[in-house]
């Protein structure tokens, strides 16, 4: 028991260290400053046309649906966009990519990375399947990265913590960036 506890603490420490190193790194990122970027929406109510990434009827590739989304400020806009993804597609026989019952608990933006924290339904209600999971993860990532130039990375959290995968296959332990090739059903 004691050994198990020590091991657990060790694992937790290593995870914390990795996380801290990553945050530190992000903090020290140089280059683009938020003010110079187009699409900086801090503090302003905004209505935007966004490309929402859903799946095609055969579950082979991502497929775009345009929708107008309004948010009170930048973070709120990101949260609304995620809500629209969770609401699902409305036209063209497209398939949803995320379980209907999923809710986003918080959406947080800092230094080019959006952190989206979902409730357990995103994992527990997901049907499974490797490619279905790829499309689920990258519908979120592509939508946020492709629509907002200030977003470089998306970190998915489940119930507030980093997870290795969403449904047992795709690595979501770190921040992810968009994969537009998924529109043609390819990884790259």
């Amino acid at each position: 028991m004691k050994r198990f506890l020590t091991a657990f603490i060790l694992v937790a420490l290593v995870a914390a260290a990795l996380f801290a190193a990553f945050l530190l790194g992000k903090h020290l990122r140089t280059g683009k400053t938020p003010g110079e970027r187009p699409g900086d929406l801090t503090g302003l109510p905004q209505t935007r046309e966004v490309d929402l990434y859903f799946a095609d009827p055969d579950g082979q590739r991502l497929s775009i649906e345009r929708r107008e989304v309004t948010g009170e400020n930048r973070e709120d806009l990101f949260a609304r966009v995620v809500e629209e993804l969770l609401r699902g597609p409305t036209e063209g026989n497209r398939l949803r990519t995320l379980p209907e019952t999923t809710q986003a608990r918080t959406v947080y933006f800092r230094d080019g990375t959006v952190w989206v924290d979902f409730d357990a339904a995103i994992r527990d209600e997901h049907p499974g399947g490797t490619w279905t999971e790829v499309l689920a993860v990258y519908s979120i990532v592509n939508t946020l990265v492709e629509n907002f130039p200030e977003v470089d990375w998306v970190q998915i959290l489940i119930e507030g913590v980093q997870s290795d995968t969403l449904a047992g296959h795709v690595d979501i332990s770190g921040p992810l960036t968009s994969r537009v090739q998924l529109l043609s059903g390819e990884w790259e």
């Binding site: 009827p57 579950g59 398939l95 949803r96 990519t97 049907p127 499974g128 399947g129 490797t130 490619w131």
Partner: peptide, 8 residues
């Protein structure tokens, strides 16, 4: 070895 699933 896995078995697959989709939303449809």
């Amino acid at each position: 070895i896995h078995a697959n699933a989709a939303f449809r």
